[in-house]
Amino acid sequence: MSSKKIVIYTSPDCAYCYTVKGFLEDNNLEYEEIDIYNDEEGYDRMKEISNQDSVPVTVIDGEIVLGWDKKRFKDLLGI
């Protein structure tokens, strides 16, 4: 089991966000979710760290993943 800190920036009704969350849940991984539609500071932070404004942005122990990229998730999470 990975003990890495995972934060996902999402928006409601975003299929890519749903996919990322589903993948983490299938692998029994806990994550913090920041809904950028309801968290303006979170949205600003996401833009700052990812240098773009599309969701989802996932931060795994400081490493940033843009969108749904299974291979990168598996590599970063060691699964």
Partner: peptide, 13 residues
């Protein structure tokens, strides 16, 4: 410009 003005998903962005 994907994620910097261009998107394929209205619902998401």
């Amino acid at each position: 410009y994907l994620g910097r003005g261009i998107s394929y998903c209205v619902t998401c962005d």
